[in-house]
Structures are given as structure tokens and as C-alpha cells.
Simulated assay, not measured.
Amino acid sequence: MPIAKCEFLAQCDGKMRIFDDLHRRIEEILPSAGLDDTVTKKGRITMTWRMQGKTAVITGGASGLGLEFARRYIEAGMHVALADRNRDSLNAAEQELTALADADVHIMAEQCDVSDADQMQEFCDAVYTKFDAVHCLMNNAGMGLPVGAPWESRDALQETMAINLGGVINGCHSFIPKMLEGGQSASRIAMAPGI
């Protein structure tokens, strides 16, 4: 049963046993996922990584889910490197995150089109120049599907696929070899584009 349906049943039908079962299962898997310090508040579970001083890379990090993850990683004491193709949003995100960060947490924000393999490699090289290692790669950059049927606008569909699929491929191709070279046992690789 999807989590959203479990939460709906728990809140609307009063079937708390469904939520309790889900909560228990999540608590069982958290230690193996490198997460600890589980706190439950009003039916929501907050997870904190003990990742202070580690580095997270987030593509599409200037807004939406990417920016929210950046906030969370900064709260956990992680350095954050953001990539986004929208310069204005990227500047605003960098200012916000810098204001949130402690003095020993560093923020990096680079304009990058993830669909361009050369730009992604340049971003990767810049990240490794600034930070010694990457511990978390979040290939988050993505865009919604074009309006209308996919066959109506070939260019729009190709752009969507270049970002949503090509961006993940480019991110993995650029970062994963270096992450493996570094032997970082805490590496996390997330892919969350809007495919």
C-alpha cells in the first residue's frame, strides 16, 4: 500500500494501526540506511544524518525539492554544492543557504545545464577542487513533461528527456567514478528527476 494512502487512512479513518505499522517498519530500516535520531511529531518522521562536514551535490538545487534537501543537509552540518541552469534562482538559493549555514559549512553554487555532459564534468571538477570528496549525489534536476501529447512537440520532448534522463546519466558519469576512487563508505546516490 502506498505511503500516501496509509497516511490518508491513518488521518481520515482513524485506523492508526496502519500508520503505527508503517512507522515501525521505517524505524527498523533507518539504521541500515545510515540514518539515526528518529523523532516522531504529529505523525511525521524526521530523520537526521550524522553527516557533519561531509559534502552533498544537488543538481536542480535552486528551487523545489532540491533546495529543500539543501536546507536539510545544511541543518545536518553538510557542505552543499548546487547546480542549476537558472542563474537568478541559483543566486537567491545561495544567499538563503549561506544565511542558514554555520561558519564551518560551505556553500557552492554553479550555473550548469545538466543535459550538457561537458558542463556537468566542469561542475564536477569544480566541486572536487573546492571539496575533497562527495558523500551524497542527488541528481534532482528535472522538468515537467511538455503540455499536450508527446508526439505534438518533438523538441519539447527531446529537451525534457535530455534533462530528466540525460542529466542523471551525466551526473552519474561525472561523479560516481570519483566517489568510488575516494572510497567513501557513506556515499548516497539519489536520482529524482521528473521522468
Rank of each mutant, 00 (worst) to 15 (best):
C112E: 07
Y128R: 01
W49P: 01
I3H: 02
F69I: 13
I74S: 01
A56D: 02
L35D: 01
W49M: 04
A149G: 09
C172P: 11
Q184W: 09
A103E: 14
M179P: 05
V39T: 06
S32P: 03
K130M: 12
E159A: 13
L65Q: 06
A192V: 07
H135N: 12
E27G: 15
V168Q: 06
G167A: 02
A103M: 08
L90G: 03
Q11G: 13
P2V: 01
K54V: 08
E122D: 12
G183Q: 06
W49A: 00
G14L: 09
R44I: 08
Q52H: 15
T55C: 12
A99G: 10
D21L: 12
D20F: 04
R85Q: 07
E152P: 13
M120T: 07
M120D: 04
M161L: 14
L157R: 10
G144M: 07
A162M: 08
A103L: 05
M1I: 14
M51G: 14
I169S: 04
Q111I: 06
H173S: 15
R71S: 07
S89K: 11
E181Y: 09
D84S: 08
T160D: 01
I189T: 11
K5I: 15
G166D: 08
D125W: 08
K5Y: 14
L9A: 14
I26C: 02
G167T: 03
G183I: 01
L157K: 05
D21E: 15
V134Q: 00
Q121C: 09
R87Y: 03
A81F: 03
G166M: 06
H106S: 14
S63A: 13
I195Y: 11
S63P: 08
W49L: 02
D102P: 05
Q52W: 13
M16Q: 15
A101R: 00
L97V: 05
S63H: 11
S187Y: 05
S185T: 15
G60Y: 00
A99M: 12
